[in-house]
């Protein structure tokens, strides 16, 4: 499967975003920020999918992006609900 050199630029940006997100999860201790970092990782993956879909001229990548977006939205709902529920009972949030 020929992958042209143009896709490399997108992949590098995507890898950078993913790394920043992963570092955010590992370094930060505030669940909200960790949560945002995870969203960043998912969007980095989306960028990869879109770049591949474009350069491979295939629809699968686009479809995958829609699924990831939907899942990410569902994760926001569940994640924020858990964080709010903890905050209500403790009035502070910290993963430690």
């Amino acid at each position: 499967m020929p992958i042209s050199d143009h896709v490399t630029a997108y992949l590098i940006v995507s890898a950078l975003l993913f790394t920043i997100g992963a570092m955010g999860v590992l370094v930060r201790r505030n669940p909200l920020v960790m949560f945002m970092s995870i969203e960043l990782m998912l969007n980095a993956v989306n960028l990869s999918f879109m770049a591949f879909a474009h350069f491979l001229n295939s629809v699968d990548g686009w479809m995958f992006v829609f699924l990831v977006l939907t899942v990410a939205a569902a994760e926001v709902v569940v994640g924020l609900a858990i964080i709010v529920s903890i905050f209500r009972s403790r009035h502070e949030i910290d993963v430690d």
């Binding site: 499967m1 992958i3 896709v7 992949l11 993913f18 997100g21 992963a22 999860v25 669940p31 960790m34 949560f35 995870i38 990782m41 998912l42 980095a44 993956v45 990869s48 999918f49 770049a51 591949f52 491979l56 699968d60 990548g61 995958f64 990831v68 994760e75 569940v78 994640g79 858990i82 993963v95």
Partner: peptide, 21 residues
């Protein structure tokens, strides 16, 4: 939630690269 979504992101990135390859 946090750790599992973190792992999901890794899995997903792996899937994206498999798709790309």
């Amino acid at each position: 939630f946090i750790l599992s979504s973190f792992a999901s992101a890794f899995l997903l990135y792996g899937m994206a690269l498999t798709y790309g390859a």
